Simulated scan of single mutants.
Amino acid sequence: MNLLSVLVWFSSISFLYFGFSCFFSKFIISEFQRYGLPKYRKLTGTLQLIGAVGLLLGLYKSNVLLLIASAGLFLLMLAGFIVRIKIKDNFFKSSPAFIFAVINALIAVKTYFLISGVSYN
Rank of each mutant, 00 (worst) to 15 (best):
M1C: 10
L4A: 06
L7V: 12
V8W: 02
W9C: 10
F10W: 08
S11N: 07
S12F: 01
I13L: 14
F15M: 12
L16T: 06
Y17F: 15
F20K: 05
S21D: 11
F23L: 14
F23M: 11
F23A: 11
F23R: 07
S25K: 03
F27Q: 13
F27Y: 09
I29K: 13
S30F: 05
E31R: 11
E31A: 13
Q33M: 11
R34G: 09
G36M: 13
P38R: 11
Y40K: 10
K42M: 13
L43H: 06
L43W: 08
T44N: 11
G45W: 02
G45F: 06
G45H: 00
L47Q: 03
Q48L: 13
L49T: 03
I50V: 15
I50C: 08
I50P: 04
G51T: 08
G51L: 08
V53H: 02
V53A: 15
V53I: 15
L55C: 08
L56G: 09
L59A: 13
K61L: 15
S62N: 14
S62W: 05
N63C: 05
N63L: 14
L65Q: 05
L65D: 00
L66G: 02
L67Q: 03
A69W: 00
A69E: 02
G72R: 07
L73D: 01
L73G: 01
F74S: 04
L75K: 04
L76Q: 10
L78H: 02
L78K: 03
A79I: 13
A79D: 06
G80V: 07
I82Q: 06
I82V: 15
I82C: 09
V83S: 01
V83H: 02
R84H: 12
K86I: 12
I87F: 09
I87G: 05
K88Y: 09
S94I: 10
S95G: 05
F98V: 06
I99R: 03
I99H: 04
F100C: 01
F100L: 05
F100M: 05
F100H: 02
A101H: 01
A101I: 06
V102Q: 01
I103G: 01
A105I: 11
L106A: 10
L106V: 12
L106H: 00
L106G: 04
L106S: 12
A108L: 06
A108P: 03
V109Q: 02
K110V: 02
K110D: 03
T111D: 00
T111Q: 00
L114I: 13
L114M: 12
L114T: 04
I115K: 00
S116F: 06
G117E: 07
Y120R: 05
N121W: 11
